[in-house]
Amino acid sequence: MSNFRKSRAVLMGLVMAGTTAAAGALGAAVTPAAADTGTASTVANVVVESSITLTELTPSFTLTGAPGEVVTTGATPVTMRVTTNNFAGYNVTVAPRAAALTPSIAGNTDTIPTNLLAVNGPVQGSAYVPLSFGTPVLVATKPSASSADGDVITNNYRITIPFVRPDTYSGILDYVATTL
Score class of each variant (00 low, 15 high):
Met1Lys: 09
Ser2Arg: 05
Asn3Trp: 09
Arg5Ala: 09
Arg5Glu: 12
Val10Tyr: 13
Leu14Ile: 12
Leu14His: 04
Met16Gly: 12
Thr20Tyr: 14
Ala21Asn: 14
Ala21Glu: 08
Ala22Ile: 13
Gly24Ile: 09
Ala25Ile: 14
Leu26Met: 14
Ala28Thr: 11
Thr31Cys: 10
Ala33Pro: 02
Ala34Met: 12
Ala34Tyr: 11
Ala35Thr: 10
Gly38Ala: 15
Gly38Arg: 15
Ser41Leu: 10
Thr42Asn: 05
Val47Glu: 12
Val47Arg: 06
Val48Lys: 03
Glu49Ala: 06
Ser50Ala: 12
Ile52Val: 06
Leu54Asn: 03
Thr55Val: 01
Leu57Glu: 01
Leu57Trp: 07
Pro59Tyr: 06
Ser60Ala: 10
Ser60His: 07
Leu63Asn: 09
Ala66Val: 09
Val70Ile: 15
Thr72Gly: 12
Thr73Phe: 03
Gly74Ala: 11
Thr76Gly: 04
Val78Asn: 01
Thr79Tyr: 05
Met80Ser: 02
Thr84Met: 05
Asn86Trp: 00
Phe87Asn: 08
Val94His: 07
Ala95Leu: 03
Pro96Met: 03
Arg97Leu: 04
Arg97Trp: 01
Arg97Lys: 07
Ala98His: 06
Ala99His: 08
Ala100Val: 07
Ala106Gln: 00
Ala106Met: 14
Ala106Asp: 02
Gly107Phe: 06
Thr109Leu: 10
Pro113Thr: 10
Thr114Trp: 00
Asn115Arg: 00
Leu116Met: 11
Gly121Leu: 03
Pro122Gly: 13
Pro122Lys: 06
Val123Gln: 01
Gly125Arg: 10
Ser126Arg: 06
Val129Glu: 11
Pro130Ser: 10
Val137Met: 03
Val137Ala: 07
Ala140Phe: 01
Ser144Asp: 11
Ala145Val: 03
Ser147Val: 00
Gly150Ile: 05
Gly150Met: 01
Ile153Lys: 02
Ile153Met: 06
Ile153Gln: 05
Thr154Glu: 04
Tyr157Glu: 03
Tyr157Phe: 15
Arg158Asp: 01
Arg158His: 05
Thr160Gly: 05
Ile161Asp: 01
Pro162Asp: 02
Val164Tyr: 04
Pro166Thr: 13
Asp167Gly: 04
Thr168Ser: 13
Tyr169Cys: 12
Tyr169Pro: 07
Ile172Thr: 07
Tyr175Gly: 02
Val176Asp: 06
Val176Lys: 13
Leu180Gln: 13
